[in-house]
Each structure stands twice: as structure tokens, then as C-alpha cells.
């Protein structure tokens, strides 16, 4: 599965970067099929048929060279640190404040005899933040299995529900308590954003969960669920990279993972060389971007516009 994913990813990167397309013939074929559907549904044929002329796209868009170079540099840095992390197990990340709170939260739930609630974001499993949330779910699941605390997971998409079930099954197995795992405690609620928020709010208030984890990609529902959770007195830990939702989590949660700390947390907890190497590669990419900004600032000050124009993307 990993190699299939990786190969599709690489193909996608190359195609999308240079907009290599075989769309011309497909475009015409699809238009003809649309007419066939109209005929099949016994609709009258249009009096005029405009088959739009397929636009000829160049094989390579050279104005995208800067994007390609950036991707090569970032990929090279990430792959380098991936390689180093696999070979050198002493590579670590700095301690992230808020991760100790996971043990504290689960411990408190165990003392109170109340369940833990985990919401891995309000987007689907194809989003990067959701994947990071699921990695932390794995850790929380392990802790809950160890302390024999019930864990409720509420999701907004069926695919995420099944992925979460898989992850938790594995966590409970690793903790040596597969008997405690119940797939029914991982629920798919609804696709609708605010219906999902209403369901979470209702669950928190009625079940009186002792600890809440809101980790993943959130939007407007973040304020609703974190504020409602705050009124129940539960300990709340949140994490999202959506900067516009962070203020609400910061105001109503006990601990918040800000932005990229979410991704670093999943690497820190799992200690997997792949995740560690990725974070370290990104860190040095950020250092490079900072250097570019400093250089660009100097260029803007002294009027070296060519340097700045190289970063033009449109």
C-alpha cells in the first residue's frame, strides 16, 4: 500500500507541476457522452451544438520552474533527514508542552470513572491534519487501554470512522487489552458540520466525559464544541493547524497544540523515524525560507528586483 501510494504521489507531483495533460481527446469524448445522455433521457437535442475546441497545453510550463526547484529542495531535505533518522536513532525533537497533558487527562478520566472523548477533526482522512490526529489517537487509545478507560471517538466521515477503528484496534492490541476494544464506540455521526457539532455537544453534556481531545482539522464548529466542553468542567486538549480556529481552543482548552506542533506531536509520540525525519527536514526547510526572506528583504531594500521576481508564481 505504501509503495502504491508513493508511486501515485510521485506521478501526481510530476503531472501537476508541469500540467502534463492528455485532456484534449478526453475533453471531446466527454462532451459527446453528454449529448448521448441527453438523447438517452429523451430530451430534445440542442439546436446548436458547441463542442469547445480543446485547448492545446504545452508539455512543460517553464514558468513553473521555481515551484519545481522548491519541491526538489524540500523533498531532498526531507529525504536526507529520513535517511539520517533511520540510521541514527539519537535524533530527537524538542519536548512539546501539552503532550504530558495526555497522560494527565487520561489519568483524570480513570480517577473519575468517566469516558474520554476524542474528535479527530471535522475533515476526512485525506487531510494531513486528520492523519496527524489519528496518530495521536493511537497514543490516546494505548493510554486508555492501559488505564481501562472508555474511549469514545466521534467522526464526521465514514472513511475516517473505519480508519479510526483500525488504529484503535491496533492500539488496544499493543497495550495487551484487545478485549476492551469496542468498534461501536467509534461513531460516524453526520456529514453536516453543525449537526456534527451539535452531536458532540450533546454527547459531552449527557455522558459527562472527563477528558476531551479535539485534534485535527477544525472549522467553525471548534468554538461550539470547545466552549460547550469547557462548561462541563472536563480537561480539554486541542490541536489544529487551522490558525483561525486556534484562538477558541486557546481560550477554552487547558492545553493547545498550535499549528505545526500538531504534526511534531505525532512524530514525538510515535518516535517513528519516518515522522521524525519529516519534521526535521521541514524544520531546515523553514530555516531556508527564513534565510530567503532575509535575503529578499535586503533585495527589496537595495532594489534588486530580479531576485524577488524569480519567486513570481502567476
Amino acid at each position: 500500500m505504501k509503495s502504491l501510494s508513493l508511486s501515485l504521489f510521485i506521478i501526481g507531483v510530476i503531472f501537476c507541476t508541469f500540467q502534463i495533460s492528455f485532456g484534449n481527446s478526453i475533453s471531446t469524448k466527454v462532451q459527446i457522452d453528454s449529448l448521448k445522455i441527453a438523447v438517452n433521457n429523451q430530451q430534445s437535442l440542442p439546436s446548436k451544438v458547441h463542442l469547445s475546441k480543446p485547448e492545446i497545453q504545452p508539455l512543460f510550463k517553464t514558468e513553473r520552474l521555481n515551484v519545481f526547484i522548491f519541491l526538489i529542495i524540500i523533498s531532498a531535505l526531507v529525504l536526507t533527514f529520513l535517511f539520517l533518522a533511520k540510521r541514527n536513532h539519537s535524533l530527537t525533537l524538542r519536548k512539546i508542552a501539552g503532550l504530558d497533558a495526555i497522560d494527565e487527562a487520561v489519568g483524570r478520566a480513570a480517577e473519575m470513572g468517566r469516558p474520554v472523548l476524542f474528535v479527530p477533526g471535522s475533515m476526512d482522512v485525506d487531510r494531513i491534519q486528520t492523519l496527524a490526529g489519528i496518530a495521536i489517537l493511537s497514543k490516546v487509545g494505548y493510554e486508555c487501554a492501559t488505564y481501562e478507560v472508555d474511549l469514545d471517538v466521534m467522526t464526521r466521515f465514514p472513511l475516517l470512522m473505519s480508519t479510526s477503528q483500525e488504529i484503535l484496534r491496533q492500539s488496544y492490541l499493543t497495550a495487551g487489552r484487545p478485549d476492551l476494544f469496542s468498534p461501536d464506540r467509534v461513531q460516524y455521526i453526520t456529514d453536516n458540520q453543525f449537526a456534527f457539532a451539535a452531536a458532540i455537544t450533546g454527547h459531552m453534556v449527557r455522558v459527562k466525559t472527563a477528558a476531551h481531545f479535539f485534534i485535527g482539522e477544525f472549522y467553525a464548529e471548534s468554538l461550539v464544541i470547545s466552549e460547550a466542553g469547557n462548561t462541563t468542567g472536563a480537561i480539554q486538549i486541542a490541536g489544529t493547524a487551522n490558525s483561525h480556529q486556534l484562538p477558541f481552543f486557546l481560550a477554552s482548552c487547558d492545553y493547545t497544540l498550535i499549528g505545526e506542533e500538531l504534526f511534531a506531536a505525532s512524530a514525538y509520540l510515535s518516535r517513528e523515524p519516518i515522522l521524525l525525519g519529516t519534521i526535521l527536514g521541514q524544520d531546515w526547510s523553514k530555516a531556508l525560507f527564513g534565510l530567503l526572506i532575509v535575503l529578499g528583504t535586503l533585495a527589496a531594500w537595495f532594489g534588486w528586483t530580479d531576485f524577488i521576481h524569480w519567486f513570481q508564481t502567476e
Partner: peptide
């Protein structure tokens, strides 16, 4: 980016977009 009428063969009202003047002037 290629064509309006390919992705929207019918509009909201169920009319065929192929014969609309808008899409002959602005195809994509």
C-alpha cells in the same frame, strides 16, 4: 479550465449548456 459544458452539461434548471450563447462566447 478546459470547458464549462463538459463539467456542467446541464444547468440548474435542466437546460443543456451546449446551446447557450454564454458558453460559446466564454467556453472555459
Amino acid at each position: 479550465g478546459s470547458s464549462w459544458t463538459t463539467s456542467f452539461p446541464k444547468d440548474f434548471r435542466g437546460n443543456s449548456t451546449q446551446e447557450m450563447e454564454i458558453f460559446s462566447r466564454f467556453p472555459s
